[in-house]
Amino acid sequence: MLMNDMTPDNSLARESGVTASAAASTGPMRISREHHETVGDYTVADPRITCRNVDVYYGDKRAIHAVNLDIGRNEVVAMIGPSGCGKSTFLRCLNRMNDTIESCRVTGEIELDGQDIYDKKIDVVPLRSQVGMVFQKPNPFPKSIYENVAWGPRIHGLAQNKADLNEIVETSLQKAGLWSEVKDRLEKPGTGLSGGQQQRLCIARTIAVSPEVILMDEPCSALDPIATAKIEDLIDELRQQYSIAIVTHSMQQAARVSQRTAYFHMGDLIEVGETATIFTNPVHPLTEDYITGRFG
């Protein structure tokens, strides 16, 4: 279902094929497939992050076109779409992780609590301490489990003393649902854990800094179903406290964990809405093609 080798010609071929069959099955359409402006309401009442007209370029190539999207408090926003649609690129704009890629350039406005994060005066370090990120492949540091979690608070100076730090480590591991599994081997290297445990360790590591927003880039794609289920439960719990934006390949996962869903297609944000609506009654034909499995 992945389209890693999507070249312009065969994507066109597939699209036209899709057009024909979709037209046959659903009758007349109000929105054409060529319509690339966002359908649905991308704003929320009490936004944490607001994005307006965000473009991302890699060198001369525009990877994201004029995306508008809000992320509200205590909600999980899922971003779905075929590979190469720009959802991960967009996610990485939200804590300026794209800064590490030399050719990458971001324009437009992204505000966190009303503050433009691409403002020249903004330092990425405090920004990232507020907007944490969990990656596709678990990437624990080659340190002990304890050190993995304690490292963030330590560099930021969040703990007054050793006891404080111990407490932060313990609560973070508890919140990540890992405490009972690792409490007896905190000094063992984090790389020795199973894939699912490693990913939860990475989540604990992110929580330990007490961010306000957590970005998750396909956090379960490298995990087995049981580990995935645990992480999904965890995401649901974390929502009580944090805003979460999650990129996922799995529509079922998006349906299970998110309140709102955004569908990306070739660099455009095609449709945003309540998760339930998107999955049961999509407006844009491209969204429908994707969620019904005709595409991607």
């Binding site: 992780m97 590490t100 990232r128 301490s129 944490g132 990120m133 990656f135 990437n139 624990p140 930021h156």
Partner: peptide, 27 residues
């Protein structure tokens, strides 16, 4: 040293030198 290690540190809000000294270099 894989880029993902650096990403992990940056995402926690580490500065570049903190990342280099405490994550990349030990690795």
């Amino acid at each position: 040293v894989p880029q993902s290690m650096r990403d992990g540190a940056y995402a926690l809000g580490a500065t570049k030198s903190e990342t280099v000294r405490k994550v990349v270099f030990p690795a």
